[in-house]
Every structure is written in C-alpha cells, then in structure tokens.
C-alpha cells in the first residue's frame, strides 16, 4: 500500500463519517421542526379556546369586560408572533391571563356549576398540560440538536452545511 492509497482511504473514511453525521443532523433538525409543529398545534388549540371561554363567561359575568378584552388582545398578539423565540413572551402572557380568567370565572358559583364551563375548564387544563409537554419535547430536541452542532468535530462543518442553532421556546 502506497502513501497515496493510505491518504485516499483516510479521505474516503472521513467523507463517509461526515455523510453519516450529516444525515444524523438532518434527522435531528427534522425532529426539532416536527416537535415545533406539535407545540404550534397545541398553542392553536389554546387560542381556539379563548373565544369559547369569553362567550361562556360573558353570559354570567358581563362586567368583567376588561379582562376579556385583555385576553382577546393577548391572543391576537400571540397569533401575530412567529417562531419559538418571538412567541415565548406573548404566549407566557396569554397563559397567565387565561389562568387568571379561569380563576375569576370560578368565583361565580352559578358559572362554576354550569356544564359547558366545566367541560371548557377541563379542556383548558388538558390543553395546558399538552402545551407544557410539547414544549418539553421541543426544548429537549433543541438541546440535543444544538449540542450536536456546537461540539467537535461537527461544529467544523455544521455551519458550512447551513445548520443553524435552533431557538428554545421559553413560553408557558
């Protein structure tokens, strides 16, 4: 075996390793995107629940109009934001406002006993659990992906192939 053969073999080996690593990075990036789609679906479910909550509660507590207006405004702000980092703050505010609105509604005994409010309350709780779980999965994927592209030796060529660090979703 000549030195040229050794160099060629090494180059082939390095090329193979880079190709395998590239495929893994693509898979990880797809997982990040897939998990974000899940977060997005759950956030959309939350957004869809707000007009229903306003509708149900308004009938019993019309004088809480300010609270509902605020909730609608925050929902619209959250819908306008796009991307994990940009959506973090408005979604957190919306989640806090939504929890507050449910707490206020619970203060009305007639509403607390209403069938449609109870089912909505349950749906809100389930949605909040799913949002939290989807966020955990998404941030977990981002952590794995970012660690991968920022550590040696992948960090050398990740940028070259267009693998940018993903953003964490800090929202509630």
């Amino acid at each position: 075996m000549t030195p040229v053969d050794v160099v060629l073999a090494l180059l082939v080996l390095v090329g193979l390793l880079v190709a395998l690593s590239f495929n893994r990075l693509v898979r990880l990036r797809n997982k990040v995107n897939e998990a974000w789609q899940d977060v997005d679906v759950q956030l959309q479910r939350r957004h869809d629940l707000i007009p229903r909550l306003v509708e149900v509660v308004e009938g019993y507590a019309a004088h809480e109009k300010e609270l509902f207006d605020e909730l609608t405004r925050l929902r619209s702000e959250a819908e306008q934001a796009s991307g994990a980092a940009a959506q973090s703050a408005p979604e957190s505010e919306l989640a806090t406002a939504l929890a507050g609105a449910v707490a206020v509604a619970e203060g009305y005994p007639s509403l607390r006993a209403a069938e449609n409010f109870l089912s909505l309350q349950k749906e809100i709780a389930t949605t909040e659990d799913e949002v939290a779980a989807a966020r955990t999965i998404y941030n977990g994927n981002v952590r794995i992906y970012n660690t991968r592209i920022q550590t040696f030796p992948v960090s050398f060529y990740a940028d070259l192939f267009g693998f940018e660090p993903a953003e964490f979703f800090q929202g509630a």
Partner: peptide, 8 residues
C-alpha cells in the same frame, strides 16, 4: 415519534 430523547 417527534422526541429525539425518546428515540435515544
């Protein structure tokens, strides 16, 4: 599934 950690 969508979780890389679960996949690991």
């Amino acid at each position: 599934l969508e979780s890389a950690e679960l996949d690991q």
